[in-house]
Amino acid sequence: MKKRISYWFLSGLAVWMAIILLRQNSIYIPVINDHFTDFITVPMYCYLIEYMMNSLLGFCWKPDLRFVLTSVVYLSFLFEIFCPKLSEHFTGDIFDVLAYCTGGMIYYIFKIRPTYI
């Protein structure tokens, strides 16, 4: 039986869509537009990988701290170092890296760590 997608994940997608619509209509909310999307990126990425591994591929896998940390490093490198060199639409920002780290640690503390206690 396939696991249903989390309401938190769907809420994150809804927030992302709302922010995209606001950007398209030239409505700019600084903290939400600049850092909130980065804050929810790592939790959504980790959840999506877990969902795909377990529900779609049939594994019984849980992300651990090492997975969360490597996800933070990977996404930070991709979106804050590599992509800004390819396009002017991306900007490298240390505060975005801090948002990735904070989102990853909150995901670990509230989603992963309670399963080990």
Rank of each mutant, 00 (worst) to 15 (best):
T102L: 11
V42Y: 00
Y108L: 09
F59E: 14
T37M: 07
Y51N: 03
R4T: 14
M52L: 11
N54A: 00
G12E: 01
L98T: 15
E88G: 15
S6G: 03
R66T: 11
M17E: 09
T41G: 05
R66E: 13
C60W: 07
P63S: 09
L65W: 10
Y100R: 01
V73D: 00
W16L: 12
M52P: 02
C46I: 14
L75A: 11
D38S: 10
Y7N: 06
G92P: 00
Y7A: 13
Y7C: 04
E50Q: 13
Y116T: 15
F110T: 13
F9R: 10
L57E: 03
L22E: 05
F90T: 12
E50Y: 04
I29V: 06
K85V: 09
W61C: 10
V15C: 10
I112L: 15
P63V: 09
I19E: 03
T115V: 12
T115G: 15
L69T: 07
P114G: 13
L21S: 12
D38K: 00
Y107M: 01
Y107S: 04
T37H: 04
S87N: 12
E80G: 10
L86Y: 10
T37R: 07
M105E: 08
L13Y: 05
S71T: 10
R23D: 07
C46G: 04
L69I: 11
L10T: 13
I5T: 14
R66A: 15
L75P: 02
L57I: 07
L10R: 01
V42K: 04
F77C: 08
L48A: 15
I20S: 06
R113C: 13
T70A: 09
T91V: 12
L21Q: 09
P114D: 01
C60V: 06
L69R: 07
V97R: 00
Y100K: 01
Y100N: 00
D96N: 10
P114F: 11
I29R: 04
A14K: 10
Y45S: 03
D34I: 02
T37A: 10
W61Y: 14
I20A: 05
G92A: 08
S26P: 01
S26Q: 06
F9S: 03
C60I: 09
L21E: 02
K3M: 12
T115S: 15
K62I: 07
R113F: 13
I5M: 09
W8I: 09
G12F: 08
I19F: 02
S26T: 05
L75N: 02
L78A: 15
D38G: 05
N54R: 13
F79K: 00
F59W: 11
L48T: 14
L86Q: 15
F39W: 03
M1K: 13
S55L: 06
E50D: 06
A14T: 09
V42W: 00
L13Q: 03
F77I: 12
